[in-house]
Amino acid sequence: MTAPAIAYNFAYLDEQTKRMIRRAILKGIAVPGYQVPFASREMPMPYGWGTGGVQVTAACLVPEDRLKVIDQGADDTTNAVSIRRFFQRTAGVAVTEATADATVIQTRHRIPETPLTEGQILVYQVPIPEPLRFLEPRETETRKMHELEEYGLMHVKLYEDIARHGQIATAYAYPVRVEGRYVMDPSPIPKFDNPKLTANPAIQLFGAGREQRIYALPPYAEVVSLDFEDHPFQATKAAHDCDLCGAKVSYLDEVITDDAGGRMFVCSDTDFCAGRRARGLIGRLGGDQKSSKTFANSFQGIWPGTEGAP
């Protein structure tokens, strides 16, 4: 653990910016699902790399926090690693890969498998916060539609899915209605994760840096996935068990292992998978692997080395 560089204020952002973002967060929590505009700052990373999530995390962090960062469920991918290091250097907070140990978790496109608890904050990175944007390009009009609760359009999107594919084919960023009021884009999490949004004891915060929007779900907020009576919402996952830890209930990534059709399914949540394996739970191909991280490291030839000095 390196000491924070003196040139930075705690957690990178200046205090005025943090106040501004905290006000937006509080407003978001007070009006669940409502997109609060905020003056998004330039961050030392490109848009699309989590600038919104980073600003929300920076505004929430206190020195006692223990931070976990995941990208598509994994703690050890480029984006997660660089953001984790960013906060190690600018805030000096403790970091962890264990979901249960973390006080703040920044995530891109997943909700951890391990159930969250009261006191935890889950920060989502959001590319496009407006769920109506797909069908209505005018911002003035989508705001009006939120104001007047004109959400028929959301169902038009689902209707188009069924008409084209015979079922609701939307697999991620599946729209939800919060507390019977605002329709919200839960960020591009797989719809498998949608049921975890509702009645969650943790605070869930959503930050969209490029689009300059923050929205939130307070603990235990009611979140309902939109659907039709004759085509009800279904959380789906690949019909396999994890090949490393044997889990039947976790969201899986499909990994191509060779150029002869070989493939395997592994938990997208690396912490969850590693925890199970540590408890001796082994899947079809898990016997000779030390951890999912070791497994990932076997790709070092194609991935740039991201894990720097310890």
Binding site: G152, L153, H155, V156, Y159, D227, F228, E229, D230
Partner: peptide, 13 residues
Amino acid sequence: GERLMAIGARHYG
């Protein structure tokens, strides 16, 4: 179908 869905129709069929 949009106008129907806008006034609350929720049965695809």
